[in-house]
Each structure stands twice: as structure tokens, then as C-alpha cells.
Nucleic acid binder design. Structure first.
Lengths: 201, 201
DNA sequence: TACCGACTAGACGGTATAGTTAAGTCTGAA
DNA sequence: TTCAGACTTAACTATACCGTCTAGTCGGTA
């Protein structure tokens, strides 16, 4: 029962914090949304701020798991890169994750800890994972990456280009991202393909 | 005098809205920050929401002006691209603009109008301006861009890669962006240089 | 001087807020 | 049946909020 109620609290809190932001969310609304009494809520979390941090940490944990999920054993470099790209695109298209990011950004000036937690759960491991893949593909001769960190940033930003901003700003827009991952991989290969140094820049 | 007080109101409102977000900002704090009485405030703006929209529109106007500022008459393609890239990097490093973006993102679920206004003042004209430059350079033979919109998104995101997220999330981090613009231009030229089709992809 | 428009400080009403507490209900095990 | 623990409802405190309003100040003009 305890775990069940705990989950109810988190569920309601997540929804209300995502919808109204940290400051805009009221604890009464959170309790109502989770169908839980305020007394129970306060028996689990001593304050609204702690509850918010709990939600952010829990959601960031799920996010980090999602990012670090094992890759398939695809051997073909292009397939591997497309799997990575698709995973990034899917994250940006996922409502829960984008609302989490929106909420963290909105709260990060007043509660810098929140921004830090999200950064360590999202962008940082993503960059590291992508970096490892790019380095491996470079060792195997499929890519020619000198600075894995910079190349990872480039790859990730090619993946989210044109998608992230409208999503963050809640701009209603018929985003058509079917070919997005493929295009990002194509761009990356042009940027860092193993024969890119042959060119006269 | 009227204009002066009006500016004071806006100044205080901007600071408090940026610091605490729309919901977190109180009208008393805004009046105090602007050294203005509440009565005066309400004589200019009928409500907190209208005041917020006023601040966002005013700041977005400045942002759009900054983006659409005429480019220098640089003729050399690389110099032109570096000027563009540097302008984008500078925007991401500007505290006022990043706080504006943070605030808009934070408020955009509850007040979608705000996200829309920012999008039309920032990302949209930026993409259009960059697109025009890329198309011109393509006509002149310096680039080979087929889809200006996609190429603009790529260029812009190469410019902000590794900078935007830490800034939005208020992550304290020794960002060293001296060579950032140059690297973005180099990457763009590898991606869309006029000889890129010679490669075997 | 008298007046006027724009400002200020501060209090107000009515509501909402975060967090606490008291009294009672439900469930399941001994 | 009894009992303990977890839960709920509902009221409560004390503060903060938005927006309004009153009483009064100030600088310039006729």
C-alpha cells in the first residue's frame, strides 16, 4: 500500500508540475490530481520543494535509463548511427520528456540544482554514449573523428535541429520527422566520414 | 515622465519575471524592483498577464532586431558565414536573451502565446536570414545547398551545439566558445561546400 | 496663489497558498 | 473482536497573492 500511494503522489505531482511549473503548481492541486490527501503527501515529502526535486530526480532517472539502454548489436556503421539518431529524435518527440525538460529549464534559475540534475541525466550521458560509439567507429575505420566530444555535440544537434525549439516552446506545428534521423546520419557521414580529409576545404 | 515611468515598470517586470518566472513573480516584487507604485503599474497594464505579455513582446522585438541587423558587406563567403555564426553564438551567450528564452519556455505550456511570440521573433527569422545567405552563396557557387531550410537548421544547430543546453539549464560550466563559430563554419563547409558531391558517401 | 495631472505609500477585500492538526474510517492480521 | 497502522476529510493558521482604492505628495503652469 505504501508503494502504491507513493506512486500516486508522484503521478499527481508530475502531472501538475509539468502543467503549471514549479511555482504555478499548488499542493492542493497535486493532492487532488493524485487522489491522495495532503496529510499523506506530507508524510512522504516534507515540503513542496522536496516533492518537486523527487519528481525531477525520478523522471531524470527514467530518462538516463532510456538514453543508456543497450544498443542493438548492429554491426553496420550506418545502421548503428541511425539507431542512435532515432533514439535522440524519439526523445525529443516524447511528450513526457519534453515537458520534463521544459519544467527543468523554467525552474533552473530559481533552483539551479534542478538544471544540474537534468543535465547529468540527459545531455551529459547522451554525449558520452554517442562519443563512445563515434570513437569505436573511428577505430574501426568507418569514421574519422578527432574530437569525439565535439563530434558528438554536432551529431546530437543535427538530430534535434528544427525539432527541439518548436517542441520546447510548445509551438503547434506539423513536425514531420520521418526522415529526420536518416538525414542527420547522412550529414554526420559527410562531416566525419572516413574519407572526409580527402576534400579540399 | 510617462515614458520614463513606463520604462521603469518594464525594467522591474523584466527582472522579476526572468528571475522567478511568470507564476513565481509577484506584482509587489515587480513594483518594488522598478521603484514604482502598484497604482502606477496598473495604470499602464491592466493585469499581471498583460504586463508579462508586454515584457515578452518588447524583449522579443529587441531580439528580432538583433537577429535581423544588417550584415557587414563582407564578400568573402567564409567571412560572411563566420559573421553569422558569431552572431548566433553571441546570442546564446547573452544573459538577457537566454533568460528570456528560459522564461518563455517555462511559461509556454500555460501560456502558449508566449512560445509562439518567441518563436516568431527568434528561431524563425534566424532560420530565414541564414537560409537567404546560404541560397545566395549557392547561387554564387560557393556552396551547394539543395534544401535551404534544412541547411539553415543544420548551421544554426552546429553553432549552438554544446552551448545552448548548459546555458538554458543554468549549468555553471567554464564554456570556452572562442573557436566555436569558426568550427561551426568549418563543419558547414564540409557539409555543404560546393564540392561535397564529389565525395563517395 | 490655485490648480492639475502624475505619482506615491499603504491599506483593503477576497481569495489562494503552504503546511499542520484533529477526528474519524478502513484494512488486515492476531 | 481487537488492535495498529495507514489513510481521509475537513478545518485551521498564517502568510501571500492580485487588484482596487484612498489620502496625500510633488512639480509645473496659469
Amino acid at each position: 500500500m505504501r508503494e502504491r500511494k507513493m506512486a500516486d503522489v508522484m503521478f499527481g505531482a508530475r502531472e501538475v508540475f509539468f502543467r503549471r511549473g514549479y511555482e504555478g503548481a499548488s499542493v492542493d492541486a497535486i493532492a487532488a490530481e493524485g487522489k491522495v490527501s495532503k496529510a499523506t503527501m506530507y508524510s512522504y515529502y516534507p515540503s513542496k520543494e522536496q516533492l518537486f526535486l523527487g519528481v525531477v530526480e525520478s523522471e531524470c532517472g527514467r530518462l538516463a535509463e532510456e538514453i543508456l539502454r543497450p544498443l542493438s548489436r548492429a554491426s553496420e556503421p550506418r545502421a548503428l548511427l541511425e539507431e542512435l539518431a532515432q533514439r535522440i529524435v524519439d526523445l525529443v518527440l516524447d511528450d513526457t520528456y519534453i515537458r520534463l525538460l521544459r519544467t527543468c529549464i523554467g525552474a533552473s534559475e530559481a533552483l539551479p540544482e534542478v538544471g544540474e540534475v537534468y543535465f547529468r541525466a540527459g545531455p551529459k550521458p547522451a554525449r558520452e554514449l554517442v562519443g563512445q560509439v563515434l570513437e569505436r567507429l573511428t577505430r574501426e575505420g568507418a569514421l574519422d573523428v578527432d574530437d569525439a566530444r565535439r563530434a558528438s555535440d554536432h551529431f546530437i544537434h543535427l538530430c534535434v535541429s528544427g525539432l527541439l525549439m518548436p517542441r520546447l516552446l510548445a509551438v503547434k506545428r506539423a513536425v514531420k520527422p520521418e526522415k529526420h534521423a536518416g538525414e542527420a546520419v547522412a550529414a554526420l557521414l559527410r562531416l566525419y566520414g572516413s574519407n572526409h580529409r580527402d576534400k579540399v576545404p
